[in-house]
Design a protein around this nucleic acid. Structure first.
Lengths: 122, 122
DNA sequence: TCCATAACTTACTTTGAAGTGCGTCCCTTA
DNA sequence: TAAGGGACGCACTTCAAAGTAAGTTATGGA
């Protein structure tokens, strides 16, 4: 890994930065739904039925603050707001893909990671 | 991403799996210190001064349960326990590397990700 | 007149991860 | 006799993230 320079305590581990950016309970799911299209608030609500309006709004605002998502407001009544993945957000996609691949292996193995590990580790 | 098959609600997003595995406050740091060598409990304590014994023990046990870390006990007095990255744990390294790289960019940009994003997004 | 709509706030409660402090086990050396 | 490792376990507290429920805004249409 590339962060071997400074004392480990001095600067936060960059991995934690990614975890912070993606670590909200619904953030990966939200980004997932923004991958292929721009979505409205209400669309996301329908696509993620278990999320509450509060959490959706909060996570979208955090993703926007981190520059991953662009928010566009159309000043109509009732209001219309669109969310899209930013170009910067797109730079995260390969990382998410790597995470996704590993997660799938870890996950689909009969939900007993210990056994997978034993099989792999011999 | 590869998880487009089932209904999004049916199966947990694989990204969350990675976040769960790496998401403990000290887990990335612990794995980081195990990358190049096998370490004893007390060694890890010294390398991560701010961690408490409880959290170190707890996170090591979780990492072991997830199959990422192998625990070896030497029945001496006083006891000696060694922790090493398992082969399965090594499969996570490229993922961690990708996260690390992105995290560094996001992090080192004057700690104002919003501005970086604006620069990138134009 | 008044209700529906979209996209939120705000106030409050609950959950769970993290931190604190101390006990423990067994043997060795002073 | 007693102190001192090494690697924890346990009971408790703390605090931030998540969830619940209700209110807000402004207006075009029934």
């Amino acid at each position: 890994m590339a962060a071997a320079n400074a004392t480990t305590e001095e600067r936060k581990c960059p991995i934690e930065t990614v975890i912070h950016v993606l670590g909200g309970k619904w953030k990966p799911t939200i980004l997932w739904h923004l991958l292929d299209a721009t979505r409205r608030f209400s669309e996301l609500e329908k696509m993620i039925p278990e999320i509450t309006q509060k959490m959706l709004a909060q996570h979208l605002r955090e993703l926007e603050a981190d520059g991953l998502v662009v928010r566009t407001v159309y000043p109509t009544v009732p209001p219309k707001v669109e969310y899209a993945l930013s170009e910067y957000g797109i730079t995260l996609v390969p990382v998410m893909q790597a995470m996704c691949n590993w997660g799938e292996v870890h996950q689909t193995s009969a939900w007993k990671p210990t056994e997978v590990a034993r099989a792999i580790n011999g």
